[in-house]
């Protein structure tokens, strides 16, 4: 499978604060990646670097085989939806379509008109007067009308009510089903991402905690429950991602590499993706607290 996005040691520093550090991700072409992490984990920073809205302080990245840059040929292949879904409030939807036509060499006007009409969004109304869900649909349609190969979405559903969120994700899933599109979508709403994505990237404290195919992630992780014990007694090849202890028992989320056997004393469970992601997000938090001490 071809790689759509590849980063190596990518970092972004603001003053002395690293918003993103040593970020290594690899996103296969045609995948739908969920970019998750707590607030301030560096999700927006990463997306901004990938489309060239900001410049990296360290490391490198390749997006669709090119170094992100503010150039027309690079931008033409990427659709981008910024956080808070910015649109020109005094422009009507129709004006935004004309804008898209005026600012892009490749822009499918017929497609966007049909799409927005099907969603019964009034084209002559100022977008400032549309609902949040409608604005998100207009912004998504604008990004899709570029006929991009890659779609980067920064928390597009964060501000939407559950119904609008559902509609937005359906629209997105339909666009993905039409084919030829790689999507990276950030969010902290895990349940939503699970519905549409097949790949997951977990960022915490500015670092990549996990970047892999969801199927593989599920296979590689086990939830172990056993009597309270020292986790160091576990064999090689088992990496404890997260542990919780009560007086009598310990619960461990471990990553199993290769064919390592889990000691028989432990009860083995299959965790769901949400539990795994939360474990990795918690890891970042622990790391953070550790470095603060």
């Amino acid at each position: 499978m071809e790689v759509a996005i590849q980063t190596k040691d990518l970092g972004k520093r603001y003053g002395s604060f690293w918003a993103l550090e040593n970020c290594d991700i690899s996103v296969p072409e045609g995948s739908v990646s969920a970019l998750v992490g707590p607030n301030g984990a560096g999700k927006s920073t990463l997306l901004n670097l990938l489309i060239g809205l900001s410049n990296a302080s360290a490391g490198e990245s390749q997006v669709l085989g090119r170094v992100p840059h503010q150039r027309e040929d690079f931008l033409a292949d990427i659709g981008y939806l910024a956080q808070e879904i910015p649109l020109y409030k005094s422009f009507s939807t129709h004006d935004h379509i004309t804008m898209g036509k005026s600012l892009n060499k490749r822009f499918d006007e017929e497609f966007i008109r049909k799409r927005l009409t099907d969603l019964s969004i009034p084209l002559d109304k100022r977008v400032g007067k549309l609902s949040g869900g409608q604005r998100a649909q207009v912004a998504l349609a604008l990004a899709l009308a570029k006929k991009p190969k890659l779609l980067l979405l920064d928390e597009p559903v964060a501000a939407l009510d559950p119904l609008a969120r559902h509609d937005f994700l359906s629209s997105l899933a339909q666009a993905v089903a039409d084919g030829g599109l790689t999507v990276v979508m950030s969010s902290h709403l895990l349940a939503d991402l699970e519905r549409v994505s097949d790949h997951v990237i977990v960022l915490a404290s500015g670092k990549t905690q996990l970047c892999d195919d969801i199927e593989r992630v599920l296979k590689q992780h086990k939830l172990l429950v056993g009597p309270r014990s020292n986790t160091k007694e576990l064999g090689d090849g088992l990496r404890v991602i997260h542990e919780t202890h009560t007086a009598k028992q310990s619960t461990l989320l471990v990553r199993v590499d290769g064919k390592t056997k889990v000691p028989a004393a432990w009860q083995k469970h299959e965790p769901n993706i949400e539990e795994i992601i939360l474990a990795y997000m918690g890891q970042g938090k622990d790391l953070n607290e550790g470095s603060a001490k």
Partner: peptide
């Protein structure tokens, strides 16, 4: 302030133009 820089700079027009 309205974030539209991120809308317009991600169309296929360079910032310079």
């Amino acid at each position: 302030t309205e974030g539209t820089d991120k809308l317009v700079w991600t169309q296929s027009v360079s910032r310079r133009k």
